[in-house]
């Protein structure tokens, strides 16, 4: 027993340390609320994937661009600060928001009740459609319900993965859109649920892709999540004001046309 004592003590110390750390209240780094702090540092830290066209990707000149990247820039402009884009894997985006690394996630994040509990979500700015994609030679999947007992590829903790899980499918987790769709093409999984805009773009860029869309359905409204804390209300209100302005002057619809080839800014 004596031999194991140091290990038990070390483990107890680690657990105690973590609990103490969690109990320390999050203190604001400086005076004022979230919005004031963003204005003070002069930049809005925007988290985005950077590899999910047409939402967020690197264009021909390798510069970061995309529907959400442009809107993120306009939000920063509206707040009177510079956009500071940080690229990270889908899975790290919301996690980084929570730990205060990012101010806002601009990455076509679907609004769900669960997410609204954890994050401060902006008003919806687009309403996407989602598609069910299978390999060209697949003849037996035609509906979301048809995924029961099948395997799909999707990003972890995405609403797409959740839909597949809810339908009774097994989900293999991939990190990027390209990986996700390749798994379907290669026949390693039978299907994927994804954003219509992204799949259309992929098919346009890869005309020989071994993929076909078997179903198009309305998706969730899309929002910009921000940190949920007592002092983000003014930031959320300001972001919503900027969004409604962009909506009113036709900028949102224009960007939607530019990136998705359709106006998706109205609820269907």
């Amino acid at each position: 027993m004596k031999k194991y004592l140091p290990i038990i003590v070390a483990a107890a110390l680690i657990v105690a340390g973590v609990i103490v750390f969690l109990l320390i209240p999050k203190t604001p780094s400086s005076q004022g609320d979230m919005l004031a702090r963003i204005r003070e540092k002069g930049k809005l830290t925007i988290a985005t994937e950077g590899d999910w066209p047409p939402w967020t990707y690197h264009g021909d000149d390798n510069a970061l661009t995309g529907f959400d990247v442009e809107i993120g820039g306009l939000i920063a402009k509206g707040l009177g600060v510079e956009p500071d884009y940080q690229e990270a894997a889908w899975d790290s985006l919301l996690a980084g928001l929570e730990s205060g690394r990012f101010d806002i996630v601009c990455n076509g994040v679907d609004y769900t009740e669960d997410r609204a509990k954890k994050y401060a979500c902006s008003d919806p700015y687009v309403y996407t459609e989602i598609v069910l994609v299978v390999a060209k030679d697949n003849e037996d999947i035609h509906s979301i319900e048809g995924l029961k007992g099948k395997t799909t590829s999707n990003s972890p903790n995405s609403t797409y993965a959740q839909r597949a899980l809810d339908a009774g499918a097994t989900v293999e987790y991939a990190d990027t859109l390209a990986q996700t769709l390749r798994l379907v093409e290669q026949g390693r999984v039978q299907a994927s649920i994804n954003s219509k805009g992204s799949v259309d773009e992929y098919l346009e860029n890869n005309p020989n892709a071994n993929l076909k869309v078997v179903l198009t359905i309305p998706g969730d409204p899309v929002c910009f999540p921000m940190v949920k804390s007592a002092d983000t209300d003014t930031l959320v209100a300001e972001v919503n004001r900027i969004l409604s302005q962009l909506r009113a002057d036709g900028t949102l619809a224009g960007l939607s046309q530019k990136y998705f080839g359709a106006d998706m800014t109205e609820a269907k």
Partner: peptide, 14 residues
């Protein structure tokens, strides 16, 4: 990966 998934569901990272 499992830790990532649970952390996404629970909203706790650390």
């Amino acid at each position: 990966r499992q830790a990532q998934i649970i952390s996404g569901q629970r909203g706790d990272v650390l």
